[in-house]
Design a protein around this nucleic acid. Structure first.
Lengths: 232, 232
DNA sequence: ATTATCTATAGATCTATAGATAATGC
DNA sequence: ATTATCTATAGATCTATAGATAATGC
């Protein structure tokens, strides 16, 4: 593998694990056993690394937003696409963790990110509108507008939310998967009131699948909730 | 005003404006025309300043979560409390902007934040449950669990979301107020499907108030949307 | 006496570059 | 010749402390 790609891979790994703020170009070079000078031969600066990673992330997410144009997809297909998007969000979670600083630091990334998010929200909105056209979603345009924004905020905030309540030491990856599924559950809950009667019979099973045995009570997501309740 | 309080006020101002990451103890001291040594006389370190600001923030939010125990409150009252909470979120927005780094850096803050968020979610859930008991909210316990988590994530993410799409240069404060109101609109949209028929007649006016003349289309929130659409 | 403040500085980073050297490809 | 890599380092921070001095309160 080329050194340039190894730098990207390592940066992504270290940024996700420790936060971009805590990972210097020295750290990245040291992890790879290359010199800092070599790193700067391949990338103008740290922002350039972040920008390249953003482009990878953007391409992944957009690949899941462009649905096959032929036959309509089922609701279950749609939920599946959502799962892929949340996976990408997790794989590049450092971006949303330090998003504001990264955007403030780099005008190019700022413009690219704004274009990306407005495009993705627009695509998501169109999907909901076409569901409304075909009678799957019983919602007014105003309701769809509010719904897609709520979904977007949930999706981009989910990984940061999980990490803020310190569910992060998940080497095995099973906890990670369960908690990503929980985001899908939350989105199904957002859409549920608007789904037509044809879809509703599917929901109990879908919700069960994405709840993955967890309690619906959000308090069970907070690790120290027991101590907390005792102290009140 | 005591120097200690001036340090807190200035730190809050600079943290919010520039991000905690970009504001060093030197910057805070320079802004106040005091020496860095003096700052360290009043606070052990930068984390201690952040922690004190968190305590202020927590007290503000919690004051709005403890509703008057006597007579039931109206739905409009509830919305009003929400507005106060979102105001506090905005006033301390640096906390959510750099939350993960702050928590990683300070175990005391980490525990306090977790306790705070689980308590606040529990309080919010109880409010929704009592609305269900009195027939205002027609939702199952599972639906309430999902709803309160979605509301919580929206509330804590809203200021970061606004800043990520670069709506920040709002010295006049009018844009700020309109955009905070938009969060209320989004939360009303979350609750709307579950509200009883007695409440529904109130909603058009409430939604109009919190939309504040803006379009419901989320794309109008993204400043560069026009260029973006042209480039597709 | 106690509290508040200042000066000066140690020590630890970090980013980015200049300039030399090694490896590769025609 | 071109591409990749290294060494060494300048210059800019930052955090936190030691120790001296000034201001305040009894």
């Amino acid at each position: 593998m080329k050194t340039k790609d190894r730098i990207l891979l390592t940066s992504l790994k270290l940024f996700n694990e420790q936060g971009e703020r805590n990972v210097s170009t020295n750290h990245i070079a040291a992890y790879l056993n290359i010199s800092p000078g070599n790193l700067y031969y391949h990338f103008r600066n740290k922002n350039e690394i972040v920008y390249q990673l953003f482009l990878q992330y953007q391409a992944e997410v957009q690949s899941f937003m462009t649905l096959p144009q032929d036959g309509d997809i089922t609701y279950e297909d749609k939920v599946h696409y959502l799962e892929s998007i949340l996976n990408s969000m997790w794989d590049y979670r450092f971006l949303h963790r330090d998003l504001q600083h990264l955007l403030q630091d780099d005008a190019t990334l700022r413009d690219a990110y704004r274009a990306f998010s407005s495009r993705t929200v627009a695509d998501g909105r169109n999907i909901l509108l076409s569901m409304a056209d075909s009678g799957v979603l019983l919602a007014s345009r105003e309701q769809i507008d509010a719904l897609i924004l709520n979904i977007w905020i949930l999706v981009v905030s989910w990984s940061s939310f999980l990490q803020s309540i310190s569910i992060q030491h998940n080497e095995a990856g099973t906890l990670r998967k369960a908690l990503l599924k929980r985001a899908i559950y939350q989105i199904i809950a957002l859409e549920e009131p608007f789904l037509c009667d044809d879809i509703k019979p599917l929901l109990p099973e879908l919700k069960k699948k994405y709840l993955a045995g967890a309690s619906t009570d959000p308090l069970t997501l907070f690790p120290t909730v027991l101590d907390e309740v005792e102290n009140r």
